[in-house]
Amino acid sequence: MSREKLVGQLVDVFRVYGYDGASLTNIAKATGVGKTNLYHYFPGGKQEMAEAALERVDLWLETSILANLNSKAKPIDKLQTMCEQVKQFFNEGHNSCLWAVLALGRSSNDLFHQQIGRSLCQWIEAIASVLEEAGLENRLAKYRAEDAVLRIQGALVLVRGLDRTEPFLRLMQTLPLELLKSDR
């Protein structure tokens, strides 16, 4: 198995188990790679595996979200594309957010707090820039950008709690226009 494919599987393992719950036994079982071979790919053990998983999510953020939000497209198109990419990445709400899972874990928060915070700030700043480009003043744009990420994360939690994807899908449909409203 390639390291690339293994990292994709690790994202799923840490989404499900978090950092503390992702034992090497769980990781080996979920990936089909023996514990010894896991150390071949990741000599730094579980922490290196989680870092690789976070790097994969950061790569998604950079290539699928930030690149789009920084493009020359119209603001509404940028926001709609962002929501489509979010919907796809989170499997229409069925997948948890790795940032959220790791940020909530007691030991993983200490390990990954700065990396997760940096990624979330980049996302918020990129959304705010799009909203400023659309004519919103800086403070309102920043508020709405934070609110957008907050609502996306909350919708992912709601999907898990209700076992229904409709709230997440509804948000992905309505969020672009709501962010751009001038009377909000």
Rank of each mutant, 00 (worst) to 15 (best):
S119F: 06
V13K: 08
K29C: 06
S64R: 13
V57L: 12
H40R: 14
S107Q: 14
L61K: 09
Q9D: 13
V33W: 06
F168K: 02
V16G: 00
V13Q: 02
M82T: 11
L79G: 08
E92M: 05
N70P: 00
N95V: 00
S119K: 03
C121P: 00
A30C: 05
Y41D: 06
Q9Y: 01
R15Q: 14
V159N: 13
K78N: 11
K78P: 12
S182R: 14
E132Y: 01
W60P: 03
I124F: 03
V13I: 14
L38A: 14
Q9H: 03
L179R: 04
F42E: 02
F90G: 05
S119G: 07
V101M: 13
Y143L: 11
K35C: 03
I127Q: 01
A73I: 02
N26I: 00
L54S: 11
L156E: 12
L175P: 05
N91Q: 14
S129Y: 05
T25W: 02
N95G: 02
A128I: 01
Q114Y: 09
H113L: 08
L140H: 06
L102M: 07
Q88V: 04
D163T: 06
A50H: 01
L24P: 00
A148W: 04
A22C: 09
K72N: 14
K29A: 06
R118M: 09
T63V: 12
R118V: 08
V33L: 03
Y143W: 13
V157F: 14
Y17N: 15
V149D: 01
S107W: 00
E55A: 15
G161V: 13
K74P: 03
E178W: 12
D183H: 14
R160V: 02
G154E: 03
Q9A: 04
A103D: 15
A141Q: 07
A148D: 07
R144W: 11
L171Y: 03
Q9E: 10
S23Q: 02
D163A: 10
L169D: 06
T25I: 11
G105Q: 05
R160L: 12
N109C: 09
A30D: 15
F14R: 10
D20L: 05
Q85N: 15
T165S: 15
R170A: 09
Q88L: 12
N37C: 07
L150C: 04
E146Y: 11
T31C: 08
L102Y: 04
T63D: 15
Q85D: 07
S71L: 02
V130H: 11
D12W: 07
M49K: 01
S107R: 12
G117I: 00
A148G: 14
F90D: 04
F42L: 00
Q114G: 04
L38S: 10
T165D: 00
S182M: 10
V13T: 13
R144Q: 14
L169V: 15
A141K: 04
V57M: 09
E92K: 13
I124G: 00
G34Y: 05
T36N: 09
K74W: 02
Y41M: 05
Q153R: 06
S23F: 00
D77Y: 02
T31L: 08
E92W: 13
A50G: 08
K35M: 11
N91F: 02
W60C: 10
V86H: 03
Q122K: 13
E48K: 04
E84T: 13
S107P: 01
G34R: 03
A22N: 07
I152R: 12
G154L: 08
G18N: 07
Y39C: 06
Y143M: 13
L120W: 03
D77E: 15
